[in-house]
Each structure stands twice: as structure tokens, then as C-alpha cells.
Amino acid sequence: MIMKSAIAQQIACPACDLLLQNIHTVNGRNLFCPRCQTLLYQKKVDSISKVLAISMAGLLFYIPAIFMPLLTLNAMGMEQTGSIFDAFLCFYNQQYFLVTILLFFTSILFPLIRLSILFTVSLQLKIRLYSKSLFFLFRTAHHLDEWGMPDVYLIAIIVSIIKIHKMASIEYNIGFFCFILLVLMTRATTSALDPECFWRALDKLKIASSNRKSNGSK
């Protein structure tokens, strides 16, 4: 019979399932699996506070980044302007439904959901307000990391600018700068996020809240 405490001191490599003794690392040092050399754990300083601050900043930039015009083109005496949301509507009007759905999820919906979840979870951890859904929310954020693609979109904007700049003069609008900031904030949440630290804090919060409840009922 495996003791509960023995399980708590072990971890398994997510890539090759090798059973390892869990050891604590110093900040900034990484742990690698000895068999497959997958990065197991990277400890980050003050992860929860940083994620709270950065996701809040990202959410502030979200609406102007998506709905404000990115670029204005001037060619042949005509002007054309567009935002990220316009690009989605444009595909919708062309009746490419698979592409439209993908575009909507990856560039508009998922970045928003992920930032909101990270904001909610880190805020509730900070003010020690427990709710059952936190575990589900944080798990969802973990899955959305890959499917939200604002950074790919930013490179696409740069490629489009290079494509267009010969045939039209380009003005950069507020949306463009807000979008750059949104991408930076999204990347920053990823690099500040220490999932292990969040999971442990969530566990602690759950135990604390159930203790409080049982004390209250007495």
C-alpha cells in the first residue's frame, strides 16, 4: 500500500512518466527530467501578484486593441481603415465559416477568456476568497494558452504592412499600439505564470475555507 505522504513527495515527468522524488528549487533554477530532459519545473518569484497586475493591464488594453482601428491606408485618394474585429466580420461576410470560427476563437475570444480567468483566479487568491469554480477556471486557462494566438496575429500585421506599404501610405492608429501592448501583456502573463505555485495556493485556500466553514458550524 502506498502511503499518502509518499505520493506527496513524488512527481512524474509529464513527457515520459518517470517517477521522481520532488525536490524544492531555488528561484530562477530549472528542473529537468533526467531521462527525457523535459523542463519539469521553473520556479518564479511572486507569480500570483505579477499575474494579477499584468492580466489587469492586459484587460485594459483589450477593448481598444480589438475594436479600435489598427491602420489607415491611403491610396488613389481613397481611405480604408480596419480593426481586428473588422477582419473577423470581413471573413464572416465572405462565407468561409470554418476560417471565421477559427479566427474568432484564436484572435478574439480565447485571449479575452484567458486573461479574465488569470485575473479572476489571481485576484481571488490575493484576497483569499474561495469559490469552487477556481479549479475549473485555472484548468481552462491552461488549455487556452495554446489556442489564443494574439502573438501570431501581431506578426501577421507586420507582414501585411510590408505587403501593403508599396501601394499605399499607412497611418498607424490607436488600435495598433494597444494591440502590441495586449500581446506584450499576454506573453508576460505566460512568463510570470508558475502553475505549480497557483495549484498549491488553490489547495491551501480550499483547505482554509473548509476549516473556516467547519469552525463556523460549531
Binding site: 491602420l71 488613389m76 481613397m78 480604408q80 477582419a87 470581413c90 465572405q94 506578426i155 507582414v159 501585411s160
Partner: peptide, 29 residues
Amino acid sequence: VGRWSMLDIFVIALMSTLVEFGSFTATQA
């Protein structure tokens, strides 16, 4: 690296929104 292949789709979406000058020139998917 998987997500980076979406690049071309995004470029087309942007091009078809921005390069739309009535009867002179227009880009579509």
C-alpha cells in the same frame, strides 16, 4: 510551433479588410 502556421490565415484576413478600394483593387480569401 503548431500555432504559428495560422500566420497566413491572419494575413489574408487583414489584407481583405484593409485592401478594399472599391472597383480599383480588392483582396479576398
